[in-house]
Design a protein around this nucleic acid. Structure first.
Lengths: 330, 330
DNA sequence: CCCACTCGAGCAATCGTTTTCTCGAACGCT
DNA sequence: AGCGTTCGAGAAAACGATTGCTCGAGTGGG
């Protein structure tokens, strides 16, 4: 592959002039500049990124580390991040941690090594990762979940309030034994949703008990098992609050298996407004998270930090919106 | 951030020794090696990726450029690619082209500049892109769609056969006026699905006509309009073959709006076995593409090419599976 | 006892850019 | 005409790693 000196030779100038001409930097004689451009074109010259990055000590790349590429919530975040990053001239590297702390750590490590300009992270809570980030000056923005020590910019959703609203909504619709599948313990979003659920029960003056709560990973399979175990009880719940759309698939499959119709037989609210939720009969009542906006805001926060380091970290908390549909109507 | 010479100074050795010790290369005195490791640990040293890449003239990064991160089909491909790449010690960069030729070209450009080890691409058909790739020696694997000139390794699906089978299935179930929403013209997968649809009509001895075909982008909105325009005809179709799961959402919404029940009122087959397709009532008959496998195979092909360049390019064609469910049962 | 060989570690070159510094020429002003 | 200033382009020094080459010390054999 052609290098800058090949171009320089062909154009009959020095490499410095090539660099300046191609980057439109200082004033270069138009004629020379034209020769350089022609030579670069002829050779199909692409600047060597690593060399440039090494010299400039900076890259125009952001890394986004999310826990599940197959979850529409996270891909929507990714899209929000990408649109903002792209508009600012940054490329986006998307990494999939699968919610595995080791994989997360590994990807953070790669990102730091490659000297990306900044990292957007939806943390698993791995302390190794935070330690790694603490030792470095690369700017980080936490999305959806905070870093254990709140030292970075953070974009969150008010999960607790959202869960409370959803629970209250179920109570107002007359459901009395409301169950909850909040996701794995230790993950803040899950814990907050559980807390909000309890708030909701309290506000509705319903008895709070732990027997109607089942924790599992944020996966369909875990949700299937949880739902099954709740519904097999002698006193099964008459409504379910489900913590994300992937789990919702598992829950709804289980309900279908058991012949339970959402709404009439059992109230269902799930987090995330996936496109297919309106296709169900009855359509699914959801807590719509502004995922795209979360990504866009996070990216903007990161870009701001790149241009103005040293500012104190901020936390932005966005709100979810309850979208009432048929699955909470008897 | 600490450099290799900081480590060398602290350990009291040369940078060469540090490099060798940390990379486990030549035989290094165990005691020195221990000192180096300790020094590196103490300083939190991470090798500078750009510098290393520049010197080694290679990176352990693959780029995957897909046209829609929000389409489960592509994210499943991404997961397949990632699993294989990760196991081989490569990181994966995911880029989203949105099916926009310019964005695709731009991302290919970035990938080439950053000197990634290889590129996996689901091409939009942009000739600029192919020209760019032709001028370079970076290995490329095309996934889902071929590059215009079949010079690269390629992983495809037998779209034509799959579409024919789906069409035949509809015909056997007694649907007589089968419509088709194959996606945009110019994209090979779309064109092949259309061809397969026509094959199917022919095999079923049904009249082929262009009046029951509507082309649109691979988006829900386009599909909504197409479906509406077909169904508003005086002689509407009694079945629809839809080219992907995103479009299927649009079609199913339109059917619901019009009060048409899949299966009974109108047969529906869609490409892609998204998780939610079983939740519908009736559940959706789909053409299940082995997306994960396509990704895994593509990644393997790319890795093979990296280790053994010069082999003639191969094309692997995988098969889809028709999964019959309620939406094609009257 | 000396020579040759091995082994391990450092020196220095190298990768391909960007950017500072230097220098020569040209121009304008007094 | 001479001097100072400006302007543009080249020479060369980084950036931080890897690696071929060199060299010194130690060892074993003749």
């Amino acid at each position: 592959m052609a290098t800058i000196s090949d171009v320089a030779t062909l154009a009959g100038v020095s490499t410095a002039t090539v660099s300046r001409a191609l980057n439109g930097k200082a004033t270069v004689d138009p004629e020379l500049s034209a020769r350089v451009v022609a030579a670069a074109e002829e050779l199909g010259y692409r600047p060597n990124g690593p060399a440039r990055n090494l010299r400039k000590q900076e890259t125009a790349v952001l890394a986004l580390i999310i826990s599940d590429v197959e979850n529409p919530f996270f891909t929507a975040i990714a899209r929000g991040v990408e649109d903002v990053a792209h508009a600012a001239g940054y490329s986006l590297v998307l990494c999939n941690s699968d919610d595995e702390p080791d994989k997360e750590r590994e990807y953070v490590d790669v990102a730091l090594q490659e000297r990306v300009a900044g990292v957007l992270l939806s943390p698993t809570g791995n302390t190794d990762t935070t330690e790694l980030l603490d030792r470095n000056t690369t700017p980080v923005v936490a999305v959806d979940r905070p870093l254990p020590e709140r030292t970075s910019d953070t974009v969150l959703l008010d999960n607790r309030l959202a869960a409370e609203e959803a629970t209250l909504h179920l109570a107002r619709r007359g459901y009395r034994r409301i169950g909850c599948l909040p996701g794995p313990s230790g993950i803040l979003t899950a814990d907050e949703r559980l807390a909000g659920y309890r708030d909701g029960l309290r506000s509705a003056e319903l008895p709070g008990s732990t027997t109607l709560v089942r924790r599992s990973r944020f996966k369909a399979e875990g949700a299937r098992q949880s739902a099954r175990s709740l519904l097999d009880r002698p006193d099964p719940p008459d409504a379910l609050l489900v913590a994300n759309n992937v789990m919702a698939v598992g829950v709804l499959q289980t309900l279908a298996d058991l012949g339970l119709r959402p709404g009439r037989d059992i109230g269902v609210v799930a987090f995330d407004d996936a496109p297919w939720t309106t296709l169900l009969d009855p359509p699914l009542t959801v807590v719509a998270q502004p995922a795209y906006d979360m990504g866009a805001v996070a990216a903007q926060l990161l870009l701001d930090r790149l241009t103005a380091p040293g500012e104190p970290p901020t936390t932005q908390t966005l709100s979810a919106k309850l979208v009432v549909r048929g699955s909470t109507t008897r």
